[in-house]
Design a protein around this nucleic acid. Structure first.
Length: 183
DNA sequence: CCCTGATTCGC
DNA sequence: GCGAATCAGG
């Protein structure tokens, strides 16, 4: 039996198709299965593919053909200098405090349904969905166009700040008499 | 933080 | 030939 990670003609063909289609290496790797994105990239270059179609689904790096300047991998020097440690540095910016939201129940507006304006940051597919991304469903789950919000979510928060507010709406007593609260 | 592709080199 | 490790950039 063929190994899962073997580059069969069909796999290569699919690789070419997806690569030309504009999918990123990681997405192609996920689609193929049992292969890492490095494997895909390596194969792509080995096949002579590159540059594919610009303006793709995830054109993170629009530029083509790297100027090739980095020695890549330094066998002599493991990593004692700042060569591989500089990336770890990160400046701590004034983070936005989590909205305390004390008591806000002035919902005198009935709001027929949901007129909530969703700031479509970047919808993502199930594949692109990461653990730290907002899982707010968008569209019908039965359609292939189903996506998730994908915005940044705080730690322990399945949704972004905006959707979290919607998901965690108070009891359900919106316009009802909420003066009576069951103990 | 995450992501992307490019490159090198040991296997 | 293959791909992990690494690099470099967004």
């Amino acid at each position: 039996m063929n190994e899962a990670g073997a580059w069969t003609d069909e796999r290569v063909e699919l690789l070419k198709k997806l690569w030309s289609d504009g999918l990123s290496a990681s997405q192609i790797a996920a689609e193929l299965g049992n292969v890492t994105r490095n494997a895909v990239i390596g194969k792509v270059h080995r096949l002579g593919l590159s540059g594919r179609a610009k303006s793709a689904a995830a054109p993170a790096t629009p530029r083509n053909a790297a100027p090739r300047k980095a020695p890549a991998r330094a066998p002599s020097h493991p990593m004692n200098n700042a060569a591989g440690a500089t990336r770890g540095t990160h400046a701590l910016a004034p983070h936005f405090a989590t909205q305390p939201e004390a008591d806000i129940e002035a919902e005198q507006a009935p709001r027929p349904s949901e007129d909530v304006v969703i700031p479509f940051s970047e919808r993502v597919t199930i594949m692109e969905l990461r653990e730290y991304m907002c899982r707010w469903p968008m569209g019908d789950p039965t359609t292939p166009e189903f996506r998730f919000c994908g915005a940044r979510s705080q730690t322990g928060m399945p949704y972004c700040s905006h959707h979290a507010r919607i998901a965690y709406q108070p009891a359900a007593d919106r316009r009802r008499d909420r003066s009576k609260v069951r103990a």
